[in-house]
Amino acid sequence: MFIIDLHYIVPLEELDKHMEAHVQYLDKYYKQNIFIASGRKVPRNGGVILALADSVEEVEQIITEDPFHKHHLAEFKITQFLTSKSHPDLRNLLKIQ
């Protein structure tokens, strides 16, 4: 599993111009069962995406499609972690035995 940590580097007004395209990007990867949760940070200086992928390289490629990346609106940090414990309802999604 991966945590994609976004840090906005432009004013929110500029970011909001690309929000609809960003949501469409998120929806694409939710439909593919790669993204499992996402949202804004509080305070609103970035966002977080939880992703299931086979490799960090796959996540890096997916990020290149994000309008926030394409238009240099945010910095992206990827953290990979091994899921050792999860809520029982997530076991099938996370492929944990």
Rank of each mutant, 00 (worst) to 15 (best):
M1P: 03
F2K: 02
I4E: 01
I4Y: 04
I4N: 00
D5M: 07
D5G: 07
D5S: 13
L6A: 09
H7P: 01
L12Q: 07
E14M: 07
E14P: 04
H18F: 11
A21D: 04
A21N: 04
H22Q: 01
Q24T: 04
L26A: 10
Y30S: 08
Y30C: 02
Y30D: 07
K31G: 05
K31V: 08
I34C: 14
F35N: 00
I36E: 05
S38A: 10
G39P: 01
G39V: 01
R44I: 06
R44G: 04
R44S: 05
G46R: 09
V48R: 08
V48N: 07
L50M: 06
D54I: 06
S55P: 15
E57F: 15
E58G: 14
E58R: 14
V59C: 02
Q61D: 14
I62L: 09
I63M: 14
T64C: 12
E65V: 10
H69W: 13
K70I: 07
K70V: 07
H71Y: 05
H71W: 03
H72F: 07
L73T: 03
A74S: 10
E75T: 11
F76L: 01
F76H: 06
K77N: 15
K77L: 14
I78A: 02
T83N: 13
S86H: 13
H87R: 11
P88I: 12
R91G: 09
R91Y: 13
N92Y: 10
L93R: 05
L93V: 06
L94S: 13
K95T: 11
Q97H: 00
Q97I: 01
